[in-house]
Simulated scan of single mutants.
Amino acid sequence: MAPSSKAVKQAIHWMLRLRESGNDPVLAQQCERWRNTQHEHELAWQRVTSLQQDLDLRAIPGAGVALQTLETSQRSLHRRQALKLLGGAAMIGSASWLAKDLDTISAWTSDYATATGERRTVHLPDGSLLQLNTRTAVDLAFTEQQRMVRLKHGELMLTCSQTPYKGQPLLVQTRDALLEGFEGRFVVRQDPDCTRVSVSQGRVAIHHPGTGELQWMADGQNWRIDAVGAQRLAQVDMDAAAWADGLIVTRDMRLADFLAQVSRYRHGYLGCSDDIADLRLSGVFRLENPDQLLQLLPQTLPVQLRQRTRWWIRIERVA
């Protein structure tokens, strides 16, 4: 359940009052009582504090101004208007830094979401297991008529319950496809231009609109789905399910593609010069500290790290 715009604005109000008071203990108790009054209040508080942590308000110019602007607005803002205002104000001082993190704001209106570098496990009402990767947002629609997970952005792993649930199919909806999972496990990732599906166990069906036909994806297969259709991938350069164990496992992967994957788990800019983009990399890398992971690259490739700030890292060829 997503909190109402009223509850979100109240949570922002409490956050600002606490910051301005230096976390006064009496005010903190009053805020605690407000949070305990309704479940929606606590949910709104968690969403606002999660966004604050992800943006790191102390480090990003304009983010604090954004919250102040929301608080002092003289007219009631619809949630979408408020989010646009927050995004716009924060970007005044950090447009390039924040550009790829705007998806985080959609967490306010999602049933479940993760911030940058976060992974989360959710036990669904039917006994299925839903795991969310970094920067992911989903909505759930579990009713008497259907079981559906809507992937708004990011990546999920779904382990289907082995117990039948009222005869309802277990569906995953993305921008490009409607998928039906059967006994087993599969990964779904929403890329800017397509949906990627990797089946670890069991089988998954693609529902084709209009015709009602099903296209089957079997155990061990990887697929790419876009507006044109579904295509099975003969080879992949990364284990699609390894992130659930906190790993990136690559097989002859381009360095530029590897850095694009690592950048999903950290803030700021991460890239490489064009002359080393096609260098190949194979190995197992742990995700808990992406910046530490990058320190391993010069041990296996003829590259060096050039770091201007905590948020800006570029990989270049060794001179």
Rank of each mutant, 00 (worst) to 15 (best):
Ser198Leu: 02
His39Leu: 14
Ala241Leu: 06
Leu158Pro: 06
Thr104Lys: 06
Leu270Trp: 03
Thr300Ser: 12
Ser94Phe: 02
Leu305Ile: 06
Ala242Gln: 03
Pro164Thr: 10
Gln46Thr: 05
Leu18His: 01
Leu67Gly: 05
Val138Asp: 02
Met148Gly: 04
Ser198Tyr: 01
Arg79Cys: 06
Ala107Gly: 15
Gly127Val: 07
Asp237Thr: 15
Leu51Val: 04
Gln46Lys: 04
Glu71Asp: 13
Arg185Glu: 13
Val149Thr: 02
Trp216Asn: 04
Ala11Phe: 01
Leu55His: 01
Leu70Ala: 05
Ala177Asn: 06
Arg232Tyr: 01
Gln146Met: 11
Gln295Asp: 15
Val284Lys: 13
Ile315Glu: 00
Met1Gln: 10
Gln46Glu: 12
Gln235His: 09
Leu214Ser: 12
Gly93Tyr: 06
Leu279Asp: 04
Gly271Glu: 02
Ala107Tyr: 08
Gln145Val: 13
Leu270Pro: 02
Arg203Gln: 12
Lys152His: 14
Ser50Met: 12
His208Pro: 00
Arg35Ile: 03
Glu42Ser: 12
Val138His: 05
Thr159Gln: 09
Asp245Lys: 15
Ile12Val: 14
Arg147Gln: 13
Val26Asn: 05
Pro25Leu: 02
Gln53Lys: 10
Leu170Asn: 09
Asp24Asn: 15
Thr174Ala: 15
Arg80Trp: 04
Ala28Glu: 09
Cys194Lys: 15
Thr309Tyr: 10
Gln299Pro: 01
Gln190Tyr: 01
Trp312Pro: 00
His123Glu: 14
Leu279Lys: 06
Ala277Pro: 02
His207Gln: 09
Asp252Thr: 08
Leu305Arg: 07
Ser94Ala: 14
Val138Lys: 02
Gln68Arg: 12
Arg47Val: 06
Thr49Gly: 07
Gly181Ala: 12
Leu281Ile: 15
Ala260Gly: 09
Pro61Phe: 12
Asp191Tyr: 10
Asp193Thr: 13
Ala115Pro: 02
Arg306Met: 11
Trp14Ile: 11
Tyr269His: 13
Arg310Asn: 05
Gln68Cys: 05
Arg58Val: 05
Val199Trp: 00
Leu301Asp: 04
Tyr112Met: 12
Gly167Phe: 00
Thr134Ser: 13
Leu287His: 06
Trp311Gln: 08
Gly167Trp: 00
Arg147Asn: 11
Glu118Trp: 12
Gln299Cys: 09
His153Glu: 15
Leu51Tyr: 00
Thr109Asp: 09
Arg251Ile: 00
Ala89Ile: 00
Leu83Val: 03
Ile276His: 05
Gln52Pro: 07
Met217Arg: 01
Leu51Ala: 02
Cys194Asp: 15
Lys9Ile: 07
Ala227Arg: 13
Asp274Leu: 11
Gln292Leu: 13
Ala260His: 11
Val149Arg: 09
